[in-house]
Amino acid sequence: MIDKFAASIAEAIGPLPDGSTVLLGGFGAVGQADQLIEGLIETGARELTVVANNAGYGRIGLARLLELGHVRKLICSFPRIAGSTIFETLYSSGRLELELVPQGTLAERMRAAGAGIPAFYTATSVGTSLAEGKPVLEVDGKTYVREYALSGDLALVEAWAGDRWGNLTYKMAGRNFNPIVATAATRTVAQVHNVAELGELDPEAIVTPGIFVDSLIHLPQEEWA
């Protein structure tokens, strides 16, 4: 019997070597797997490269991971949001490397990684400082810049409901980057608010099929710290 539910966050995440690349779903706080990020801190892995749209806020989740010095490099589209003081302090003191990527390019780089596409061309950032030094291609008179796939060793996903095969649904705009990062990592771990029996999730409503998910942990919202 396939049962991808883990008994603990530590078991769900498993061991993680130093220097790993971790992909985080979420848009700001919405849809970010804060409890799994706490578990990531517990692994003790350091020198991490973290990929996320934002750089955390306050002193929880990603901000705490940064504050505790686990992260060497952040790949991000919009690191500066209200309350992102931990990030800003680390960045301005030179203790955190930042690779700034346009949001659509960030999504597409991970989508490409999940789809086995090593590189692609896009019009986004052409003619700007973010395209400097990147190879370009002209197609039908228009210029495109080359971007490379971005894969991870671990992806952390927040989903609404999951079953033991790892099929996932999301809630509203909590979907955002989660289904993308789920496809792009060697190991994908999801925290779900609700557990569904196998067959209970409408097959036409499943957004992330279980093939992309290695491990799940049930963390109902009411039990959040």
């Binding site: 705009a173 955002n176 989660n178 289904p179």
Partner: peptide
């Protein structure tokens, strides 16, 4: 809590509205 706009402000969805992931969202844009 799961329904915010790009500025992270709380919003609503009108009848006929839909949700999709970031790659589809930027497929619409790009």
């Amino acid at each position: 809590p799961w329904l915010v706009n790009a500025g992270k402000q709380h919003v609503t969805l009108v009848p006929g509205g839909s949700y999709f992931h970031h790659a589809d969202s930027f497929t619409m844009i790009r």
